[in-house]
Amino acid sequence: MSILRFEIRSQIRTAAVWTAASALIISVFMLGVYPVFLESYSEIKNIIAGFPKEFAEVFGLEMDMLFSFEGFYGFGSFYVFVFGAAAAASLAVSVFAREKRAKCIDFIFTKPISRRNIFALKLLSVVAVLAASNIVYVAVSMLIYSFNGRSDGRFFLAACTLFFTQLMFLSAGVLAAVYMKRVRSVSGTAAAIAFGAFLLSALSSILEDVYPDYFYAPLKYFDPIKLFLNGSFGAKYVFCAIAIIASCLAASFFRYTKSDAKSA
């Protein structure tokens, strides 16, 4: 229990800042940018009307989606995801590499508590912090949504996408923290993970014409726009996400409980 308390306490301030920032980003998008965006819609509709008919039909639907509150929320979510990915990874790295960074692994491993329990408690603490942060985020999203007087039951799920995405990056962060020989900088490692994921998403938006599947771009697995268009994220991506989380955590658990406790 004291591990849980210690880790949560050590993360709570940073997590509060991350939470406030992600709530701020989505509020700026939905309350500040969206109204301006909507104003330009009628002109864009006119342009689409001038396109060849088949194209205009398909493309018009896409644009209708982007200009709807839900669609724009999905667009803004991507930026929150990149940011949230960094937050989740940094949370995991800082908790799981704490002893490695301070060169005091022997301190915690000689305590009368099994390594499995240490791992489990650390994991529990980061998931708890992440969940608390997302409760705030979902609440803010739902509040903005209700201001707009819209009601779509799927919106709640769409607001939870940040949590699902962050769980993947949390596991990736745990994996990095446990397997890296040295963790010099928490924010550096987290920034590298998030930037890499961002590049993969950029890659996928370019390759989508030739190769429609985007298994290599985890930031797009839980795309709110997909949810509103098709009613689901796509079972294969949900499965993929679960597989990523499970395999990262299993590999880390194995390593954490079995590796030599090197202090140097």
Partner: peptide, 10 residues
């Protein structure tokens, strides 16, 4: 022609 009409902030 569409992106021309997008507001600057986007």
């Amino acid at each position: 022609a569409i992106s021309d009409r997008f507001p600057r902030v986007i």
